[in-house]
Design a protein around this nucleic acid. Structure first.
Lengths: 147, 147
DNA sequence: GTGAGTGCAAATGGTTTGCACCAAC
DNA sequence: GTTGGTGCAAACCATTTGCACTCAC
């Protein structure tokens, strides 16, 4: 169990504390599952995982807690596919962009300073002040290459 | 009326022809409205515009025709905001990325060869073969700058 | 006249919400 | 014991679809 996860737990507890929110068994189970899973997952996937520990937990609670985690800065909501959210572990993560395999769904992260710089230049040329951006590269990963 | 629009009409007729599809008053009205409007619009916006010419036209017909236009290569479906599609005029358009104003919704297009090149390099380093990508820059445009 | 196109209403599906009940502080 | 949390079912909402009818070829 890495120190990042310990810190994430503390962070969540602190967030609840500071906002006059309560803890609960469900929230603990959801957080633990979230921390133990791959860094990118859907609400549905998280729900299935949590169900192995707590059968009766509702999907709405998953969504509500996921929103809490986003507000607390521990998760980030992404939209790699239309009509379905992907939640990403955000604690101790710096900015990065994504490579998404269109065959198997594998997601890899990267960051390219050159691209970041160019984006700022482009925005500048158009008189825009950037708030955020989204760069997703879609393709076939090494394992899914057609022969 | 630019030559691009004339070509777009011919292209659509040809597409229908080649695929054993029929023309209709509705399809003509929708195409004309689509060509006369700004290059980025929602199905709803197109529907409202078409309604000024043909009151009774259904929203489903708008969607069905929009899909046809995409298939014919005259439109491209984008997803700048979650849960709402944006359709873009695609005839005589080359590849480009977008700047989106988070205040007024204005959309500007740009292309940066340097970024394109870097994307290929990044994909290569990760063993990916790119099929497509999505680069959206969000921010405040010149007119919406906070003083 | 036949197969495709249309309008309408109903379905879809991921996500959110209203509400009565339950539990953490 | 008060206030927030939970599960369930119903609501959302852009988009799609089933169906009976109409129109283009």
């Amino acid at each position: 169990m890495g120190p990042a996860k310990v810190k994430a737990r503390e962070e969540f507890a602190r967030y609840l504390q500071e906002n006059g929110l309560k803890g609960s068994q469900q929230r603990s189970h959801i957080l633990e599952s979230f921390l133990s899973m791959p860094p990118h997952l859907s609400a549905e996937e998280l729900h299935r995982q949590v169900a192995t520990v707590d059968e009766g937990i509702g999907l709405s609670t998953i969504y509500r807690t996921l929103r809490l985690l986003c507000d607390a800065g521990l998760a980030k909501q992404r939209h790699f596919q239309e009509g379905r959210s992907c939640f990403e572990q955000a604690f101790e993560h710096h900015h990065h962009d994504h490579l998404i395999c269109v065959s198997c769904g594998r997601i890899e992260e990267f960051i390219c300073e050159e691209i970041e710089t160019r984006q700022d230049q482009v925005a500048d040329q158009h008189g825009f002040t950037l708030t955020h951006h989204r760069l997703d590269l879609y393709g076939h990963c090494a394992d899914c290459k057609p022969e």
